Computed example of a mutant assay.
Amino acid sequence: MRVILFTNSHWSIPLMIRLEEQKLLAGIVLTDFDHEANITIKAFAEAKEVPLQRVSREELKSDSFTTWLEELSPELGICLTFPYKIPEQVFTVPQYGIVNLHFGAFPEYGGADPLFWVLKNGERTATLSYQQMNEKIDGGPELMREQLSIFPGENYGLLGARLSQLAASSIERLFEKVTTPKTDDTGQAPVNLYKRPTQQELTIDWQNQTSDQIEALVNAANPVYGGAITYFRGAMIWILEVSPANVSNSALLGPGSIVHADQQNGVFVLCSDYRYLRLNIIKTPECILTGGKLAALGLKSGEKLGLNAVSSKQPKILV
């Protein structure tokens, strides 16, 4: 099975390596974005002498790209984290079409970044869906799916890495599915197309979100969105990791209040459900640091996090 791989992310690397080891990788299609993952994939292709094309959104529609693809004679296309809509004249070139590997269950989690919403919504299971592509965004029939249990506290990056390994290990099962005659090609129910989160959706609402919801948001935003957003002393900061905590003898304070802070134990914050979270890793405009380090730099119990917690007497920077 000669495979052409469409990608834009390091999450495709385990699959790419497995296909190349089995001499099944006919070629790679990358976006024209310049980032670390694409540089790594390009270097791999050059070292292994795998044909590679970097394309813009418009170049993907060109006759020259279609001709290049036809000359490779792929039997199957696989799309993993490829952000451009693939035109019909492209996904009809491979004998068995192009299959999209999607990190979310259909029809609940369609759209550009399902993994963020799976984690933010507190799901206990992550799904890797294999969908035959057609002219509709996330609208083709589902061929198969694989699932993983989400570990407590697992973040976006770790879960994505495990799903990418699952994609590589299940490729033979996909080959069996695409070569089996289909008895039903009616597609699926209307898909819920989630968009990428806005700044507001990435911002912690201390007054209304529970400790579980805040932890889920923090995990969903790490690392791809730089963490969940909050405000402290007038500055935007990002929380990258939290953990549930027990606090005894805390003062009667409102949600978002820092109820304890010291260098040894770190920083503890009260949530709307009157449970507590320990802030393990925080990013400020100046640096990334632990909660204990932030306490050592002068953060005090009784201070508050959030947009409405700014005092004119407080300094406007953290470090």
Rank of each mutant, 00 (worst) to 15 (best):
N38Q: 10
A112G: 11
H260D: 05
I4V: 08
E108Y: 13
W68P: 01
L289G: 03
G226R: 03
R162E: 13
E176N: 07
E172D: 13
A228N: 04
S248Y: 13
N222A: 09
Q188K: 10
L174V: 00
C79F: 13
T180E: 07
V310G: 05
L148D: 00
F103W: 07
F116R: 00
L193I: 15
A47H: 08
D63L: 10
N265F: 15
G302Y: 01
S312E: 14
I204H: 00
L25A: 02
I98D: 05
S9L: 04
A168T: 05
W68D: 03
P114V: 13
R54K: 15
I282S: 04
A189M: 12
S56A: 13
L115P: 02
S301K: 12
V247T: 06
D185I: 09
T92N: 09
V29Y: 13
M16S: 04
Q147P: 01
T198V: 12
I239V: 15
N192R: 02
G110C: 14
K23F: 08
T66N: 05
D205V: 08
N134D: 15
T186P: 01
E176V: 14
Y96E: 06
R196K: 14
R233E: 06
R18F: 10
H35P: 03
P197H: 02
V3C: 03
K48G: 09
T198C: 08
I237P: 11
F232H: 10
F82Y: 07
I214G: 00
E286N: 06
H102A: 10
T284S: 14
T81K: 04
R162L: 05
K42P: 00
R275C: 11
I282Y: 08
K316N: 13
S311P: 11
M133C: 07
V267N: 00
G97I: 05
V90R: 04
E135A: 13
S257T: 10
I150K: 02
S272Q: 05
L119D: 02
A105N: 01
R162D: 07
L166M: 15
V55G: 03
F65Y: 08
E49I: 14
E142Y: 02
P87M: 13
Q188D: 15
K293D: 04
T31Y: 11
E241S: 09
L19A: 05
P141T: 14
L119Y: 09
A216W: 06
S149A: 12
N208G: 09
G97W: 05
V319Y: 14
G157N: 04
D273T: 10
W206E: 11
G306H: 00
P181E: 10
R145E: 12
A126R: 06
N8A: 15
R233M: 12
E21I: 06
A221S: 15
A261W: 03
L72H: 07
A37H: 07
G111K: 07
E49K: 04
Q165Y: 05
I17R: 11
P114K: 04
Q209Y: 14
E215P: 02
E21R: 09
Q213G: 01
D273V: 11
S170Q: 09
V259C: 04
P244Y: 14
W117H: 07
L52D: 01
V224W: 07
N308R: 04
P14I: 12
V178D: 10
V118I: 14
F91H: 09
T203I: 13
I288R: 03
Q132Y: 08
T180W: 06
E135T: 09
G122T: 02
T125W: 07
